[in-house]
Write a protein that binds this DNA or RNA. Structure first.
Lengths: 237, 237
DNA sequence: GGCCAAAATTGATCTGGGTCAATCGCGTTT
DNA sequence: AAACGCGATTGACCCAGATCAATTTTGGCC
């Protein structure tokens, strides 16, 4: 689905009471800088399935996810898809060298992003090395996650992939929603399959198997970890 | 194999005539800075198979590869290995958040690195945002490569993986050694297999198949691309 | 509530690539 | 030059996960 901006709020919002204030790029700014920064970003809403940007697009903006979940993916010419990550509130998207995004991003459910035009944002960074340092920090963290995911894709079995995914997703939600053994899965089985390098059928079968063994319970819109230790053992961390 | 430093040259070298001067992190420094920078780094030699640093090690140094090839990899507890990349001259290693390397690095053949102690290097960066920007640039490039590799690991067939590897490796050597259809492969078949998420047997069979079809010729220490177009078609870019 | 479309599950079967097991090639040692 | 060792190749067989094919479940939407 191609993007169509649903709603723009050019003003009337304040970084100071933004939900991701503490974790996002902007956490590196002091209150005075924050007021200036406020004028650079616009909140933009996307509805479920909309494309925020595409792989081949020229980068004109950076994005800070404020609310919702996005899938980040690359497509092969024949349509095979690899999801390279899911973006959650606080994640920063759009950094690149070539001037083009090198992956595509869709909203999974309703999403709100804070959108920055490339040029003014670049100027703002110019004389604020602590913001650059923060962006570098986020890039390095992502690089670590990317390497972990390579291990999963290249060297783990289907059971291990699914178990590791459930634990990893719970871990990511921990920071946002607090600890819980009930893990919401807003993405489809196809999304999970494309993230893990599996087919939808294998993901479904593995979920069912885990449920039969009493390790999880498949619930509406997610799963419940009945036996986290069992799932951890399967993930073979 | 555990690392043992073979040789140290604490002085007597100059950044200004360093082979990677133009491409490495130091390309962002002016001549005056370079003279100061010179005192931060030490050239260290490693011989074939030696480990430069390990995943679990606390980071005490950053490294700039000056000569040779390294394999960067992660191990699962049961010994399965995923090579997350190969490092070549000009590559910068050691960036991390946790204070620990999150992968291990071995020399493939003889290697020379420029080693920087973490703390003084951090201080040097402090008031040189253009160096930080350069490091950020390298991190973002690596992130793009990591995402491409995820697509390969998760969604490509064995034939495609091998073909894409040969072309990708040739591409990386292009910047260092100039264009050539003779592609040296200093790494073992096991290394290639662990990079592509395959077994050594599958890599070997795929090479043989490509050779039978006249696309490549297997030569001592590498391969020769007889029909690059054919290999590109197989890689299904 | 009833209808339709899309998503998820389940089953049957197939196959790409893994596993196991020789064998080969070649550089090194004695 | 014979013996050794190790990486690479090749062959035979197997199996985890893909593919193909029905259902079944879910979620809008009149």
């Amino acid at each position: 689905m191609k993007a169509s901006v649903v709603m723009i709020e050019p003003n009337g919002h304040f970084c100071s009471d933004c939900g991701v204030r503490g974790s996002a790029v902007c956490s590196s700014l002091d209150p005075a800088e924050l007021r200036e920064f406020e004028h650079l970003g616009r909140r933009v809403h996307f509805s479920s399935g909309e494309t925020v940007f595409s792989e081949e697009d020229i980068t004109t903006s950076f994005y800070n996810v404020l609310d919702g979940v996005m899938r980040l993916y690359k497509l092969l010419p024949d349509g095979r898809r690899q999801i390279v990550g899911f973006a959650l509130p606080g994640d920063f998207l759009g950094m690149n060298l070539s001037g083009r995004h090198n992956f595509s991003a869709d909203a999974i459910g309703a999403v709100i992003v804070c959108q920055f035009a490339k040029t003014p944002f670049g100027r703002f960074i110019e004389d604020r090395p602590q913001l650059l340092r923060r962006i570098n920090e986020l890039a390095i963290r992502e690089l670590g996650q990317a390497r972990d995911h390579m291990v999963l894709l290249g060297r783990r079995s289907a059971d291990e992939k699914v178990a590791a995914f459930l634990l990893g997703w719970r871990e990511r939600l921990l920071a946002l929603k607090g600890p819980s053994d009930t893990v919401p899965l807003p993405m489809s089985r196809q999304d999970i399959a494309d993230y893990l390098g599996l087919t939808i059928e294998t993901v479904s079968r593995t979920f069912t198997k885990l449920e039969r063994h009493g390790a999880i319970e498949i619930i509406h819109g997610g799963i419940s970890l009945l036996d986290p230790a069992r799932v951890e053992a399967l993930a073979a961390a």
